[in-house]
Design a protein around this nucleic acid. Structure first.
Lengths: 243, 243
DNA sequence: AAGTGGTCTAGACCACTCG
DNA sequence: GAGTGGTCTAGACCACTTC
């Protein structure tokens, strides 16, 4: 890992420095997913290294999922593919009919708030923006989410227009705040519905509840989001692919 | 993916053919984790390719976790590292005291058996060996497991001496049957304890239950194990690292 | 036909481990 | 000091996409 600070040169291998440089360039949004980035030969010339070294740098970013090669066309920035990777736990189904779609989202609250202990520990700060959402499938609420993000990195988030929000937050993080979620740790457990949660989900108090806590990290490994999501345990499915 | 059969030559790139050849050689156990495999230069000579091509083949296997490079020493077969990767869901704790250790295991039953529908579908065969285990932490049963493995690939499994079994099955699969678990899909859900399960786990009938279904796959992507594990929902934790 | 990534080579020198 | 992997080069030819 790195120390969390801008690790520019030191005496790292050329391909590592190039990789970091490219990562930064991707992060700024200079390059868009619809245009190829400069060709390997061009990059080699620009950075005064051999094509082989460029390939090795690009290889790393392809592995990380940031870039995508298309033979004959060029190399492209990948539109964040949170679809497949980070949203596997919405394989919630109703009465055995498979429903793999992404739930719609209703914003309940957005405000500056002091993070609760668990979130503050995960994020390393109490100074956060709190987001409460209700996610529904076919107008049926299935998941109640409480999300905390560091106010320092998401300044102004609480004032974004409603229209800016789609069903997924991570693309928004990236587009508006340059925060790219790269990795997350989920923890699934079971509990019972509190009064508030029961009302939101339209279930009874003390009904069994599935609870997912997630800490999400950016490219540099710094925590950028903590969330806790609750849904009725009945019919709940969490799928995880272990490689 | 490949078709599941020995995909030797066809007109694949040299590094792919070499990678497959090396994989096969690792699978047979010719190479042991305590001895380096032949050096890159040696492999290049043996297979009549350049060192760069050998590196690319080895790179792939390192990424897959089958090999491990040690600069100055050589490249080694990795002792199956199921520890870190495939056993993340045993972060079960008791009353808030973190207990990250691997649970011990008591064999309850081993026999040839017709797989239940779910297992048969996952494995593609009904002809299986059934294993029932009880896993405990500090003499407290925490997880009841029912495991099905294809009889064709694990012939004689039901007759292995008790002594052959450690707390983990995957190393055994590899050492005795050459089956290397490479990937698995877990599904966590919620249920209630049946009479049998309740008795095994020493809880009450209908107590809330966490249920984990897993399908495990070998290097070639063929399913080699289906299991269902149940534990009391209270205090249950399933951790998942998403990259 | 031009330009891109995909494969492959043959060699150089460096950094590290080990006897 | 010998042997190993780690980095890097400069070039070749192939396969594919696009115009």
């Amino acid at each position: 890992m790195n120390n969390g600070y801008a690790t520019i040169d030191s005496r790292l291998p050329a391909y590592v420095r190039l990789r970091d440089t490219l990562t930064a360039r991707i992060g700024t949004g200079d390059w868009t997913p619809d245009q190829p980035i400069p060709s390997e030969a061009r990059l080699a010339a620009e950075f005064d290294v051999s094509v082989g070294t460029v390939r090795k740098a690009v290889d790393g970013l392809v592995d990380e999922g940031l870039l995508e090669r298309r033979q004959g066309s060029g190399t492209f920035v990948r539109a964040p593919s949170f679809n497949a990777t980070l949203f596997r736990f919405f394989a919630i189904r109703e009465s055995d009919g498979a429903l793999p779609s992404i739930p719609s989202s209703n914003m309940v609250l957005r405000s500056l708030a002091k993070a609760p202990k668990e979130a503050a520990e995960a994020l390393g700060t109490e100074d956060t923006i709190k987001i409460v959402r209700l996610r529904s499938l076919l107008d049926q609420p299935v998941l109640s989410e409480e999300i905390y993000i560091p106010a320092s990195r998401f300044a102004g988030f609480e004032q974004l227009p409603e229209a800016a929000f789609g069903p997924l937050l991570y693309p928004l993080y990236f587009e508006r705040f340059g925060v790219l979620v790269k990795r997350a740790i989920d923890e699934v457990s079971f509990g019972q519905a509190s009064e508030v949660i029961a009302k939101r989900l339209r279930i009874n108090i003390n009904d069994p509840l599935a609870v997912i806590r997630r800490t999400a990290f950016d490219i540099e490994g710094k925590p950028v989001e903590w969330r806790i999501a609750s849904g009725s345990a009945a019919g709940f499915r969490y799928r995880s692919d272990i490689n």
